[in-house]
Nucleic acid binder design. Structure first.
Length: 347
DNA sequence: AATCCGGGGTG
DNA sequence: CACCCAGGATT
């Protein structure tokens, strides 16, 4: 076994966190935890994992649920395609795999929402198969260990770091190796202020020896943020009109208030003119505004008071405030209701 | 290969 | 403010 592998395994046995999904070999529960934890910190995902396990103890329970209920449980976690794909994949397991969770890397990866990382994680954690995981932690640990400047957000980098990890994992307890390297990245080899004095790889780590830890990993692209202007409308404080978002953009199949989107800020006069023409309603005043920051866009949201319900469009559903908890809402709408409507009970 | 998809925490 | 988090699908 490589020094690398043995060192991090010994470190892991002494330093691992006790997490609920580490106490099971049930592939359904491991899959559920991995989907929740995609691009999500352990501390943020943990309560969602417990909620889902409680509501859907078996994959069949998830497959039999309504998508709206699944999205509702996911509310606030973001990247809602994960919830839609999770639900879809549960039905794949019931129909294409006769209710038995697939047990090979190839079959696992057929599931919607499961890519290379998640298939490798399930294959190793649930079935002890030697597939190396490469997540953000692994990129960081290995790029520093080897001071490899290949950009991790390139297809070449993805192949290279996968090969590095696969070369190190070995056949003996691959699950432990995968857990160990990710845990090391999460607890010691952190993006900023890595705790190199506690690192079992310190003596062999190329970046440590060159004091260049913070130069790794290398990324080639920068995400650029685009500005968007969302105008939402409320006609009374006790009843809301909402609609289900369609199309392929943000918050698909989630619910929102009646929306007018623009590429520039709108004045009260702009809004009065538009709502009069579109809905034959009269806008009275701006209630409040929020800036909602996402990784790739900055939403400038204004909430406007109108004098009456919209009656000329059929897609709007009218609900009482105490019924709205049944509808999955983006965090932006959820926050608005929390802070402006007394009767909005938040779970 | 590039772009899109949330929300929250950190320094 | 920039960066990142147990990434994947779509184009």
């Amino acid at each position: 076994m490589h020094d690398f592998s043995l060192s991090i395994r010994l470190w892991y046995r002494q330093n691992k966190r006790n997490l609920p999904w580490r106490e099971t070999k049930n592939p359904y529960l491991i899959w559920l935890s991995e989907i929740i934890l995609q691009q999500t910190r352990v501390i943020q995902g943990k309560s969602y994992y417990l909620k889902f396990v409680n509501r859907y103890p078996e994959i069949e329970d998830l497959a039999n649920a309504k998508e709206q209920e699944v999205l509702n449980l996911w509310q606030g976690l973001g990247y809602y395609s994960r919830a839609r794909n999770l639900h879809f994949a549960s039905k794949q397991v019931m129909e294409e795999f006769s209710g038995k969770f697939p047990s090979t890397y190839k079959d696992i990866k057929q599931l919607k929402g499961v890519g290379d990382y998640t298939a490798s994680a399930i294959a190793s954690f649930a079935f002890d198969l030697p597939h190396a995981v490469v997540d953000g932690n692994v990129y960081r640990v290995l790029s520093r260990y080897y001071t490899d400047e290949t950009p991790i957000d390139s297809s070449q980098g993805q192949k290279l770091f996968k090969a590095y990890a696969q070369d190190l994992i070995g056949n003996e307890d691959p699950a432990e190796f995968n857990q160990a390297i990710m845990e090391l990245g999460a607890l010691v080899c952190t993006p900023k202020n890595p705790d190199c004095e506690s690192c079992p790889l310190q003596e062999q780590c190329s970046a440590y020896l060159k004091s260049s830890q913070l130069d790794f990993p290398v990324k080639s692209k920068k995400t650029k943020v685009t500005n968007k202007y969302f105008n939402f409308f409320i006609s009374s404080s006790n009843q809301l009109q909402i609609e289900k978002r369609k199309g392929k953009g943000i918050w698909q199949n989630m619910f929102q208030l009646p929306l007018i989107e623009s590429d520039k800020p709108l004045t009260l006069n702009d809004v009065k003119s538009i709502t009069k023409k579109k809905w034959n309603t009269k806008t009275q005043n701006k209630i409040t505004e929020y800036q909602h920051i996402l990784s790739h866009q900055k939403i400038h949201a204004s909430f406007w008071k109108v004098d009456s319900l919209i009656t000329n469009e059929s897609e709007y559903i009218t609900v009482n405030l105490d019924e709205i908890r049944d509808y999955p809402l983006p965090r932006l709408i959820d926050r608005y209701l929390e802070e402006n409507h007394e009767a909005y009970g938040n779970s």
